[in-house]
């Protein structure tokens, strides 16, 4: 649905993006990650033409993006940024309705869409609809920012470190929301971050950039298990790689059905990382495993955790 073909960009002679090639399928959640100055924001900004690329082709929905009028292109791509950029003189409702208004949707449809999105992002519509941005917390503001990006039902969602300035608890809940929205809507998402845990949690594929060049593209598991260079392995976790790998799997796949163990059971949906933590805290090598209803369905042992996936 989107492809970058040998794309290059320089700012005043300094190369920001060097020979970027990447094909993105519909429904992927691509996380672009890299140290600061690696050009990750430029990738997004070239796609919606806030920055014009110098070389190569960028194709969206079958057409080179220069064939679109920039405004038309942007209305088909939601855009959310770290600094949020809500319009301070507009209410929450007006802010969310930005793109539907640009697309000249009829009033009742806009209103329904705003209500739907506020509910999706857990903002009580009747409480917050008429509030102004300065009356909201940072987390609520970014919920509005994400709702605004989604409002025009765009084919692609571009998110530039959207949760970077939020506290860890708020960030965690917004990561859950965006994962849920991705799963439910099947939208293609391009997400920029410098936080590897955020990338591992959200991405279907990670694109790791260093100084304007792609150094590795792969699923979180591939990047963790088979880093192609020392830069990649240092960046994705260094000595913590093993722990981060455990974070990608859930207990469910490792349950020894019919067996049991003493003590409070662990949920099947918990990650192996959480299981390992529990082994250490309880100083045991066996844990009972419970299903969603809390019934014990089996057990897991400490040595199971380090075995290859069954």
């Amino acid at each position: 649905m989107i492809s970058f073909e040998h794309v290059g960009k320089a700012f005043a002679g300094n190369v920001a993006i060097d020979d970027l090639s990447l094909a993105i399928d519909e429904g992927e959640f691509i996380v672009v990650i890299g140290p600061s100055g690696s050009g990750k924001s430029t990738v997004l900004r070239m796609l919606n033409r806030l920055v014009e690329h110098d070389h190569g082709r960028i194709v969206f929905a079958g057409e080179e993006i220069r064939r679109f009028k920039p405004e038309v292109l942007r209305r088909r791509m939601g855009y959310a940024i770290q600094s949020i950029g809500l319009f301070p003189h507009w209410t929450v409702e007006q802010n969310i309705a930005t793109v539907p208004d640009l697309l000249a949707w009829p009033r009742p449809r806009v209103r329904d869409r705003v209500t739907e999105l506020m509910e999706l992002l857990k903002l009580a519509p009747e409480t917050y609809r008429r509030r102004y941005p300065h009356q909201l917390s940072g987390g609520q503001q970014q919920r509005v920012g994400v709702a605004r990006a989604l409002a025009g039902d765009p084919a692609v969602l571009l998110m530039d470190e959207p949760f970077g300035s939020l506290d860890p608890v708020t960030r965690d809940s917004l990561q859950q929301e965006i994962a849920r929205i991705h799963e439910a809507s099947g939208k293609t998402i391009l997400f920029v971050t410098h936080d590897i845990d955020e990338a591992l949690r959200l991405a279907t594929r990670i694109v790791l950039l260093d100084r304007g060049r792609v150094v590795q593209v792969g699923t979180p598991r591939e990047v963790l298990a088979h880093p192609t260079s020392k830069f990649v392995s240092d960046f994705v976790g260094g000595s913590d790689i093993g722990i981060k790998l455990l974070g990608l799997d859930t207990v469910a796949a490792y349950v020894r059905h019919g067996e049991t163990a003493a003590g409070e059971p662990i949920a099947m949906t918990a990650s192996l990382r959480e299981a390992l933590s529990m082994f250490v805290v309880r100083q045991v090598d066996r844990l009972a495993v419970a299903d969603d209803e809390g019934r014990t369905v089996g057990a897991i042992t400490l040595s199971d955790v380090v075995k290859p996936r069954p």
Binding site: E71, R75, S83, P88, L102, R148
Partner: peptide, 25 residues
């Protein structure tokens, strides 16, 4: 705010509309 202007542009507002609906108000 720079962020408001960037968001307006990124969401697909044209320059005239940004002036009229965001900057001037």
């Amino acid at each position: 705010p720079v962020s408001a202007r960037e968001a307006a542009e990124g969401l697909g507002m044209g320059a005239a509309r940004i002036l009229r609906r965001i900057e001037l108000p």
